[in-house]
Structure formats: C-alpha cells, structure tokens
C-alpha cells in the first residue's frame, strides 16, 4: 500500500527540479519547509554531469507535468524549456529588487544569486605575474599544454563559449577556439575535473565557476583565482545567475510561486553567498568578506536569450571541435 501511494495534488507540497549542486540547494529548500510547513519534494541533478536527468525528465514529462518549479544554475536551460512551451510566466513580488538584465522580459525565468567564470590556478606551478589576464591570451605559446577547460558541449562551459561567440563574433571566436586546440588545451570531463586537475598540479590553470573555485580554495592553499578581461575596454567575465521558472500547468503552482518568492529573497541570496560564494543580485545583501561583489567585476555584456540562440547555432561546430 505504501508502495502504491501516489503524491499528486497535495495542498501542502511543492515539487522542484533542481540542477544546482545538492550540497548547496538542499539546505535552502529545507529552510523553506521549516518556515512555511510546505513539504518540498525535490529531484536533484547536477550540471557538472550535464543535467541529463532533470532536463530530459522535464521534456519527457511535458504532456503531464509533475514539476512545479525549475531551479537551474544558469538561464540557458530555462530558455530551452521556454522554447518548448514548458515554462509559465510569473512575476514574483520579489522581482522588483532584481536588475532587469537578469530577468526574462515576459518573466518565464528570473535570475538570482550569480556565479561568474573565473581562472583558477596552482600557485606552485605559475606565479600570479605570469598568468593570462584575458581569455584570449590562452592561445599564447607560453601556455601551451598548461591549461584545461571543461567539455564545451555541456554545463556552464557551453554557456561561456556561446557568450564568447556572441561577444567576439563567429569568425573571431571560431579562430580562437582553433588556436586553443593548437595550443594543446586539455578538455576535462567537467568543471569539477578542471578544479581537480589544477589542485593536483596536472595543469597550471583552468577555467571554472566561482563556486568550484571557492571550494578549491577551501581545500588547498596552493589555489588562486583571477577574474579575466577586467581591464578597461575588456570583454569582461561571464556572469551566470541562477534562474527560476514556474512550470506551465503544474500541479501545485501556488506553492511553486511561494517557493519562487522565497528563493528570490535577500535571505536566500545571503545563504547562497555564505555556502558557495554566489554573488547576490539584490543590492545591499550581506555577504562574507571572501565573496566578490558584482559591483567590482566587469561583466561580459550579453543577451541571455540571444546567447541561447547562438548556442543552438554553434553546437554542431562545437561537437566537431570536441571530437576532432
């Protein structure tokens, strides 16, 4: 009987599908449970391992959606779901505090706490003075075979590459990627593997996300970080907000909205800043001293929707780049 008990249409529950690392997202969801009494039924996945479970599940469930709220580590996945008619528009009362740049104009996704792409390096292998200051410097001969990026077909690296194609233009970006390959870039399975390779001294530096870098610094004194392209007139570094989408025709949409309101609050941003160094989007949110402020980072100027479209265009080329 217990086995056969279903769990649909309960007034005191909400179903959330989450690609943000469970170690950081679960405590926030538990706090919401305690505060509201609404039971959170979560399905976790991780973008490090391509979010296959959650994304394919949402797409496959389209005809009878089970999920109320989708919490993604970056907005690209939300854009994919929006294009497939899976998300609903919801303007949370909290959104007024979030800068317009981090919101979809019809409120199909709304951003909060952001990560950035960052260079992570091993201090025992390369002194800070010898580090590249622009991502475009990765192709310099002196860095040959010394650096790693994650597989650009997946996760935040795919987002980063698509953003570079948007900012630099197709031809320049393509040439840069080819030169990257000629400079013997090491393509790791994930950002986590990039972090590990740098920590173990297999490579001198690599590209990863700020939360990975934050963890690496906690684990080792030999690891340092650097935001790239911060010089005047530079292209800036990619900022990736978490993104929330309410799911269309979801079974517990009212609770989904309550959870969305909670996640978009200053309180949640402060928690994520403390646990994984995510940078709040709401001005004035209290953060630990180790968390960088978005006010001090030159962001890469991109349109998230257009970047998603760009990604779709370049994916076949990227696949060839990875496989050749």
């Amino acid at each position: 009987m217990v086995i056969l008990t279903g769990c649909r249409n309960s007034p005191d529950k909400v179903v959330v599908y989450c690609t943000v690392d469970q170690v950081f997202s679960e405590p926030v969801l538990r706090d919401f449970e305690e505060k509201t009494g609404i039971s959170v039924r979560a399905v976790f996945d991780t973008e490090e391992t391509k979010s296959t479970g959650v994304m394919n599940r949402l797409i496959a469930e389209k005809e009878n959606l089970q999920c109320d709220l989708f919490w993604s580590g970056d907005p690209l996945r939300n854009v994919v779901l929006q294009s497939r008619g899976i998300t609903a528009s919801y303007r949370s009362g909290q959104t007024a505090l979030i800068p317009a740049y981090f919101k979809e104009k019809e409120n199909h996704w709304i951003g909060f706490s952001a990560r950035a792409r960052v260079l992570i390096y091993n201090k025992t292998m390369i002194p800070p003075g010898a580090l590249p200051h622009s991502i475009l410097d990765f192709t310099l001969p002196r860095y040959k075979g010394q650096f790693a990026i994650a597989n650009p077909l997946f996760g935040t690296t795919t987002f980063h590459v698509a953003a570079l194609f948007s900012v630099l233009g197709y031809e320049t970006a393509e040439q840069w990627m080819e030169e990257l390959k000629n400079n013997q870039v090491i393509v790791a399975a994930s950002n986590g593997d990039v972090k590990k390779s740098v920590m173990n001294g297999e490579v001198a530096f690599g590209l990863t996300d700020t939360d990975d870098a934050f963890e690496a610094k906690k684990e080792s004194n030999d690891v340092g970080t650097l935001f790239l392209d911060q010089q005047q007139g530079g292209i800036g570094t990619l900022i990736m907000p978490n993104a929330l989408s309410l799911i269309k025709d979801s079974p517990n949409s009212e609770n989904g909205k309550k959870l969305m309101d909670y996640l978009l609050s200053r309180e949640t941003e402060a928690k994520l800043a403390a646990s994984c160094a995510q940078m709040p989007l709401i001005k004035g949110t209290e953060v630990p001293a180790t968390v960088p402020s978005l006010d001090h980072i030159i962001p890469m100027k991109i349109d998230y929707r257009k970047t998603a479209v760009q990604l779709e265009k370049i994916q076949p080329w990227l696949k060839k780049w990875v496989e050749e």
């Binding site: 690392d21 170690v23 991780t46 906690k218």
Partner: peptide, 14 residues
Amino acid sequence: PVKIFTIGANAPLA
C-alpha cells in the same frame, strides 16, 4: 547512488 552522484559534483574530494 543519486545522493553520492549529486553531492559529489561540487563537494570536496574527501
């Protein structure tokens, strides 16, 4: 297995 997989993504190696 799901928890090891999802927690392991960004947790310290230890």
